[in-house]
Design a protein around this nucleic acid. Structure first.
Lengths: 189, 189
DNA sequence: CGCGACGTTGATTTGCCTCAACGATTGTGG
DNA sequence: CCACAATCGTTGAGGCAAATCAACGTCGCG
């Protein structure tokens, strides 16, 4: 399973066998069962997670117990609360598996050490974060310029398979609408 | 002026005098007058811009000519359409100066070359993009979990000086509300 | 000065939420 | 293997936050 992460990295940078060895020693593989947590509100996020199989979601819970899904991570995506991870501050978010999920775990200390020993990794993550940033800018633009209905149909069009994998209320909270509203627009189509 | 960018980079990585020289040769300083454009819809974004003084905004114009401000960049912020810059695809966005602005320009080809010659720069940009990504995730969360009124007061509280520098309709389009709505909530306070 | 850009105010409309009640499906313990 | 609860989705009535539209005020600048 770890080889999938190595392959992903090698799409962007070259690593010698020794370097792969170093990397492999710092990363651990874990299996997370459905609804298990990697992070809860009030904790400090301790690692960066790479999804090998399954799906994680990053979400918040507000005062009246409503959940707000900020991000999903499926196969070959990194996810973490970077605000908490980088500044060692308490997180206000949750990271939870939406299905049984296999992940590669890169703890903060290991990441710091790896950046020292394998400086090419900086390039890999530079590219990863640049894309993630570009995608989130696109998403902000999308949120403001489209209605809830348009966002729903756009999402279904972009990720037809993924839609099957998550309950509708999670998709609703990702799109910033209510489950009832999705129900309504699906009915009238 | 360029020294400000060098200093900013040296907050994160070390550069020798020779490396600073190499960097300086690839970056040019430009002064952009108010309302001038660095990028228009339908063009390919050719550079990454660092604001030394002044302010740039990244925005879209939708079918009925409404403007949607996706991002502001003030002193010591990088801005670009990264989707267009990295993939050489046509942009659907505009980058415009909201006031007379001095920028450092890092063209795409120069950036690629610099990453080869000064690999430490990968680290600098890795950190920049990681923070930018974390900030935009926070913003998405904020958009969905707060009302327009709360977002307005939060923004004024976080950037009291910046609010003075931009017209209200631009702030409105950044917050995802109408200028009329901001008018109303200011009146009743 | 006069015009265009920006901001204000109020009337009306609307997209989506809230709340509540009711199926359908899943899964778990007896 | 069934009973029953919990979870998830649906439907509809009513309400509200914010948009739209229109008219008017004000300021700065060519």
């Amino acid at each position: 399973m770890l080889s999938e992460l190595i392959e992903h990295i090698q799409n962007y940078i070259y690593l010698t066998p020794e370097e792969i060895e170093i990397l492999s020693n710092e990363v651990s593989i874990q299996t997370i069962s459905r609804k298990a947590f990697l992070l809860k509100e009030g904790e400090v996020c301790e690692a960066n997670y790479f999804v090998l199989k399954g799906c994680l979601r990053l979400y918040s819970v507000d005062d009246d117990l409503k959940e707000q899904t900020v991000q999903f991570a499926i196969e070959h995506w990194w996810i973490s609360d970077y605000l908490s991870l980088e500044n060692s501050i308490l997180s206000s978010l949750y990271i939870q598996a939406t299905e049984e999920t296999i992940i590669a775990v890169l703890p903060r200390a290991a990441q710091d050490e790896l950046f020292e020993r394998l400086p090419q990794l900086e390039r890999y993550f530079r590219i990863i974060y640049q894309r993630a940033y570009a995608a989130s800018i696109w998403r902000i633009h999308h949120i403001f310029s489209k209605t809830g209905e348009e966002r729903y149909f756009q999402f279904v069009k972009m990720f037809p398979n993924f839609v099957q994998r998550i309950p509708q209320y999670m998709l609703a909270s990702f799109l910033g609408v209510t489950p009832e509203f999705i129900s309504t627009i699906r009915a009238k189509k």
